[in-house]
Amino acid sequence: MPGHFHEYAVDKQPHRVTWSVDGRTYFTLTPSKLPRPQDWVFEQDLRLLLNVAVGGDWPGPPDGSTPSPATMTVDYVRLYGEGRA
């Protein structure tokens, strides 16, 4: 829908990362959900990447309804936390 923005969020807490869209949680990851909990890599500096990648587990593989070429309009990006300048 042109002109309609969605709010994507990632809430990173110690030993938990939660992803949501428009205020609705769709996935939470903790070390215990990994095949090898010692592979937990989220307790280090992270980077933010915005792209128009297509496919994967969410929202699923591309099909006839997938726009191509794709565009992404970003209204704003807001980061909270104890990050470093």
Results as ranks from 00 to 15, higher is better:
Val41Thr: 14
Val52Leu: 07
Asp75Lys: 14
Val10Glu: 12
Val10Arg: 11
Asp57Phe: 15
Gly60Trp: 06
Lys33Ala: 12
Gln38Val: 11
Ala53Gly: 05
Ser68Pro: 00
Tyr76Met: 03
Lys12Gln: 05
Val77Leu: 14
Thr66Cys: 08
Ala53Asn: 02
Asp57Lys: 14
Arg16Trp: 00
Ala85Gly: 10
Gly60Ile: 07
Gly60Gln: 01
Asp45Leu: 04
Leu29Trp: 07
Leu50Asn: 01
Leu50Ile: 05
Leu29Met: 14
Leu50Cys: 04
Pro35Phe: 02
Ala85Asn: 12
Asn51Phe: 01
Leu50Gly: 00
Pro69Phe: 04
Ala53His: 02
Gly23Leu: 03
Asp45Tyr: 04
Gly83Met: 15
Thr71Phe: 15
Asp39Arg: 01
Thr73Ile: 08
Asp75His: 11
Asp11Glu: 12
Val52Asn: 07
Gly23Ala: 08
Trp58Leu: 11
Leu48Val: 09
Asp45Ile: 00
Pro59Lys: 06
Asn51Arg: 01
Val21Tyr: 06
Pro35Trp: 03
Gln44Tyr: 07
Pro31Lys: 11
Arg36Phe: 14
Pro31His: 11
His15Ile: 00
Thr66Ser: 13
Pro14Asp: 14
Gly55Ile: 05
Val52Glu: 00
Glu82Asp: 12
Asp22Ser: 01
Glu7Asp: 14
Asp11Cys: 12
Pro61Ala: 10
Thr71Asn: 13
Thr66Leu: 10
Arg36Met: 10
Asp39Asn: 09
Leu48Trp: 05
